[in-house]
Amino acid sequence: MSKEEVFYTVRGYELLGKEGNHLTSSMEDYLEMAYRLSQEKGYTRVGDLANALNVQPPSVTSMVQKLAETPYLKYEKYGRIELTEEGYQLGAYLLKRHETIQDFLYLIGVEEGLLEETEKIEHNVSQSTMEQIMLLVDFFRSHPEWIEAYNVYRQKWAAYKAWSGNKRGPDK
């Protein structure tokens, strides 16, 4: 370990990265879903968000009121939930981040619990790391032969693990 490296807990890193309009993971989920639901009509409603996120309407109302204090969302009691221009931009990014993480996990062979794993990761990755994951996913999508080669390797690795009991794979 290098003497220059300074380690923190996950919470420590979160506090280091906190800026003026820091959004919680839940806030990001609500904005992402509001963006998804607003695509067709330009707005959504509390009931639509509640159904889409599998939460109770009072929980949505509470979160939407908090988000109305940010520059991302406009909401009037019992009215429409509308994203601001900044909200649309952030929503588009959050959706792209979600889809990219999901694509990445699928490409590396995660199928069981894919949505849950995506949700766990997407809120804990920096923008610079996300850009690298996006680049890698784009690279693999433009080189399907490499995806196939990786899948062949995965199958060999799984067969070796099953045969030998070695949990680390054929090269270890």
Rank of each mutant, 00 (worst) to 15 (best):
E119V: 01
E117H: 09
K161W: 04
I101G: 03
Q127T: 07
N151Q: 12
Y75D: 00
Y153F: 13
N151W: 06
I133H: 10
Y78S: 06
V110S: 02
E76W: 01
E131V: 02
E116S: 14
N124E: 05
W163T: 08
G109H: 14
A162M: 10
E99L: 14
E131D: 05
G113P: 09
L90M: 12
E86I: 01
I133Y: 07
L135I: 01
I108Y: 07
R80C: 03
G165N: 06
P144M: 03
S164E: 08
E116H: 12
H98W: 13
G113A: 09
W157M: 15
E111Y: 10
A162Q: 14
I81S: 00
D103T: 12
A92K: 15
L135A: 04
A68T: 06
R97A: 05
L135F: 08
L115K: 15
E116V: 06
K156C: 05
K167E: 13
G79K: 11
W146C: 01
S128Y: 04
S126G: 14
S126I: 06
E148L: 01
A158W: 15
E112R: 15
R80H: 13
Y150I: 00
E99D: 13
T100Y: 12
L90V: 13
E99V: 12
L135Y: 08
D138H: 13
G113C: 08
D138T: 07
H143D: 04
L95R: 13
A159Y: 13
L90Y: 12
L114T: 12
